[in-house]
Amino acid sequence: MTKNKTLRKLVGASCLSLAAMSVVNLAYADTWRYAHEEYDGDVQDVYAHKFKEYVEENSDHNVQVFRFGELGESDDIMEQTQAGILQFVNQSPGFTGSLIPEAQIFFIPYLMPTDMETVITFFRESQAINENFPKLYAEQGLELLKMYPEGEMVVTADEPITSPEEFSNKKIRVMTNPLLSATYEAFGAVPTPLPWGEVYGALQTNMIDGQENPIFWIESGGLYEVSPNLIFTGHGWFTTAMMANQDFFNGLSEEEQQLVRDAADYAFEEIIEHIDGLADEALAKITEASDKVTVTRLDEKQIEAFRERSPQVEERFIEMTGDSGQQLLDQFKADLEAVQ
């Protein structure tokens, strides 16, 4: 995480090497290229390798998986996918929001439930997820294949926090996402956009006071080492999306398109099993590794103090997205009501 400059150099070399190849040949090659945003063994990496496993067991194609930093950060791999250099990409709405503002809906606090069973049912059955979002992604040349949850969001900070007042003047790292910034402004903090590669160092040097991520990512990235106070605010789940370059996908035969869809479905079922209990395991590893860690779980009264600030974030979402955002939000709420 402190090797960002070295990663950037490697990224440049890798991108030049890939770009030198024929995009047309890449799109229809026996080896398909798939990049994601996480490290070895993290949720997106497990999903990618389950997708790879299904494709390779059921076709003559191979899938080459690139992890975080091997081809750049989130904006780099999205650009490469849209250019046809990569066939598949896994990117969270936190970054896709610059392309698709409606994708930021996942950052409206307290919109999503936090119990896993309800969350999974929502992703399986939601019209917003399975019908509305594919149309929005298609407008950007992307074939949305699957959206899936990774885990409940957890805040880490330089001290325990139980109220919006205690967030006052805290510099909290956010993804380069306007609505996430609006969320932390509503919470009373100072949102500070930073690319992932700079987060550990910024926490270590007190350039920022905290950040948010699923607990497995806090453990995997070692963030608890430099930001040891964990706060479970119950404000949402981290969501990600797996997609293909649409020209590539449309150029496949019907049989191969179905292969890709089936592989995405297979990986989804596998990842749901994988994340069951993952948060508890990660938290146990963290508390075992460091005696400086504190764990704060807000009670209902404390959560309500944060929840009552969420309407202003909804209003900001509608300002950013207009009628399409309002329709999506209405459908989102209807889908959630149906599963709850």
Results as ranks from 00 to 15, higher is better:
Asn177Pro: 13
Gln211Tyr: 02
Gly236Thr: 00
Glu219Lys: 03
Met175Trp: 14
Thr205Tyr: 14
Gly234Tyr: 15
Asn250Trp: 07
Leu259Gly: 03
Ser220Gln: 11
Gln140Leu: 06
Trp217Cys: 02
Trp217Met: 09
Phe268Ala: 14
Gln140Ser: 11
Thr192Pro: 10
Lys171Gly: 02
Gln211Pro: 00
Thr239Asp: 08
Ile231Lys: 13
Pro164Phe: 10
Met243Pro: 09
Leu230Arg: 05
Ala267Ile: 13
Phe216Lys: 02
Gly236Tyr: 06
Leu180Arg: 02
Glu150Val: 04
Leu142Ala: 02
Ile215Leu: 13
Met207Tyr: 14
Ser181Tyr: 01
Phe238Thr: 07
Glu254Met: 06
Tyr200Ala: 14
Ala182Asn: 14
Glu159Asp: 11
Glu270Pro: 03
Val154Trp: 12
His235Asp: 15
Gly201Val: 07
Val190His: 02
Leu259Asp: 09
Gly141Glu: 07
Ile218Tyr: 06
Thr192Gly: 07
Pro149Ile: 04
Pro214Ser: 06
Thr176His: 15
Ser181Ala: 15
Leu252Lys: 09
Pro214Gln: 01
Thr192Tyr: 14
Asn250Asp: 15
Ala241Trp: 02
Met207Phe: 13
Phe187Met: 12
Gly277Phe: 09
Glu269Gln: 14
Gly222Phe: 07
Thr239Cys: 09
Gly197Asp: 01
Asn250Val: 07
Lys171Ser: 10
Ala241Lys: 07
Glu269Pro: 03
Glu255Cys: 00
Phe249Tyr: 15
Ala282Glu: 10
Gly197Lys: 00
Ser181Gln: 15
Thr240Pro: 04
Gln257Met: 10
Glu150Phe: 00
